[in-house]
């Protein structure tokens, strides 16, 4: 992979030049400890030193709400009005979130390819940025603290400059369009990069051990730990909304007042919702809260491994930060593991 250097004093000029590749979206500060990806009109609002955004970048590819098509007896089915082909540049994406998108790619490219998702994916370039983990990050445990593909450019902070990995021809075009802003990488830069990478390992405070986890979960399927978590869980859906790999959605028709025309919509859903597993006839095969919490963890750490060969958690820490009941996935998994050693 080709690597070049972008001195920080050239960062603004580089970011400004990106607008010809699409509408720029990047993290901005929302509040004292909260950030979000947002459309950028003023480059000075971009906050590349952030811990995590409230919603992950999945919102750009699988929007929280979207119209799939409109229908009427006269015109039949019509495509949505939103322009799926609009170009975007998503700047400042962390390694864990890029992994999150790669996991969504696996899911949406299955038997029924999701064209809404992939059209947006195709039209959005990704520029990653390195980060310093905080006390809720456990990407290292989930092997997502480093990313080798799934981006066009990746910026790694080495104090005065960024080392820029170029992963695609589009990324190469972005660099070439601003060639004068970049420099060649020298030995000292490499040394600094190595030093930073090694130093970063020391920042991790929590660890989720993956070894044998799927089997341990099977063994602890009946554990009373699930009931305990079920008692605390509010079923509020927060963890699913903020999760970079939760992809469930609900599809429904929204009718207009005439009762004939309307649109088919889809909207994020959550397996924590009581009516998620409600079926015709009123039967609910996960009516207990504990069963729903258990299902969520099993799907992330057990079912997904069986189907795709890796857990669908990327260790971003969003669910830990945002759960009102302070249910912490790392604590839960550690408890389950300890139970299996008893």
């Amino acid at each position: 992979m080709q690597i070049v250097k972008l001195p920080k004093e050239n960062l603004d000029k580089f970011m400004g030049g990106l607008s010809k590749f699409g509408e720029i979206h990047a993290p901005i500060k929302k509040d004292e400890n909260t950030y979000l990806f947002s459309k950028i009109e003023d480059l000075s609002k971009i906050e590349l030193n952030y811990n995590r955004t409230i919603l992950p970048p999945k919102k750009y590819f699988l929007p929280p709400n979207e119209t799939m098509f409109r229908f009427s007896p006269e015109k039949g089915y019509e495509p949505p009005q939103d322009n799926l082909n609009k170009k975007y540049v998503l700047l400042g994406v962390h390694s864990c979130d890029i992994h999150g998108l790669k996991i969504l790619d696996l899911v949406f490219s299955g038997t029924y390819v999701d064209n809404y998702y992939f059209t947006r994916r195709k039209n959005t370039s990704i520029i990653g940025v390195s980060c310093i983990p905080d006390d809720m990050c456990f990407c290292r445990s989930m092997e997502t603290d480093f990313v080798e593909d799934g981006f066009d450019l990746f910026l790694s902070d080495i104090d005065d400059s960024y080392l820029v990995r170029i992963a695609t021809s589009l990324g190469d075009d972005m660099v070439r369009a601003n060639q004068s802003l970049f420099k060649e990488v020298d030995k000292e830069d490499i040394a600094e990069y190595k030093r930073k990478s090694n130093e970063r390992k020391n920042y991790f405070k929590i660890d989720l051990e993956l070894y044998n986890l799927p089997e341990i979960m099977d063994l602890e399927y009946e554990s009373k730990i699930w009931e305990e978590i079920g008692e605390k869980c509010l079923s509020c859906g927060t963890c699913s909304m903020v999760c970079p790999t939760c992809y469930c959605y609900d599809v429904f028709d929204q009718l207009n007042l005439d009762g004939k025309t309307g649109e088919r919509r889809r909207q994020w859903d959550s397996c924590l919702f009581k009516d998620y597993a409600l079926v015709a006839g009123g039967l609910n095969f996960r009516s207990e809260r504990s069963a729903r919490v258990k299902n969520r963890y099993f799907h992330k750490q057990r079912g997904f491994v069986a189907q795709y060969g890796r857990p669908s958690c990327v260790g971003c820490g969003r669910c830990i930060q945002s759960c009102p009941a302070k249910i912490d996935i790392v604590e839960v998994m550690t408890k389950i593991r300890s139970a299996s050693y008893e």
Binding site: C236, V242, F273, K274, P324
Partner: peptide, 22 residues
């Protein structure tokens, strides 16, 4: 069919800073 889930869900979709947690 109206939503049966909690306000938190909509609050997250609006990317508000959580007043309870934060």
């Amino acid at each position: 069919v109206l939503p049966k889930y909690a306000v938190c869900t909509e609050c997250k979709l609006n990317e508000n800073t959580c007043l309870l947690v934060e």
